[in-house]
Simulated scan of single mutants.
Amino acid sequence: MVGKLSSDEIERVLGTAMIAHLGCHASGRTYVVPITYAYEDDYIYGHTGEGLKLAMMRENPEVCVEVEKIDGPAHWRSVIAWGTFEELSGRDAAHALQVLLERYFSREASETTRGPLGPHRQGAVHPDAHLFRIHLTEKTGRFEDGARKRPRPTLVR
Rank of each mutant, 00 (worst) to 15 (best):
T112N: 07
A147V: 15
Y31E: 01
R103N: 10
T36I: 00
G146F: 12
W82E: 15
F105G: 11
R142L: 09
P61M: 13
A94M: 06
I80H: 08
E40G: 09
G72Y: 13
I70V: 09
R107H: 07
A93C: 05
L54S: 05
L155H: 02
P151N: 11
L117N: 07
V67K: 00
S110V: 06
E50W: 14
F132M: 02
S110F: 02
S110K: 02
I44T: 03
E87I: 10
E108N: 08
E87Q: 08
T30Y: 06
Y37H: 04
K69N: 06
T48D: 07
A93Y: 00
Y37N: 12
E86M: 03
W82L: 15
R152K: 04
I80P: 04
T137L: 10
L54W: 02
H130W: 13
E62V: 15
G72I: 06
G141Y: 03
V99E: 06
I35Y: 05
G141P: 04
A55N: 12
S110H: 00
L52W: 11
K53T: 01
L88H: 04
R133L: 05
G146S: 10
A55T: 12
A93F: 00
G83M: 04
D41A: 12
L101H: 04
F143N: 01
M56T: 02
A94Q: 14
G46T: 15
E66P: 10
I134Y: 01
V32K: 07
L100T: 02
R58W: 14
Y43S: 04
I134D: 00
A38N: 08
D128H: 11
G72Q: 14
E62T: 12
T36G: 12
E50P: 01
G72S: 05
W76G: 02
V63E: 04
F132Y: 15
E138V: 08
A147N: 10
I80D: 00
K149L: 12
R103W: 00
S78I: 13
E59L: 08
R133P: 03
T154G: 06
E144V: 13
E87L: 04
V99L: 13
P119D: 01
E108S: 11
K53I: 05
D145T: 05
V65G: 02
A147H: 11
E102W: 01
P151C: 13
T154P: 04
P127I: 11
F143A: 01
R148Y: 08
R152E: 15
F143C: 07
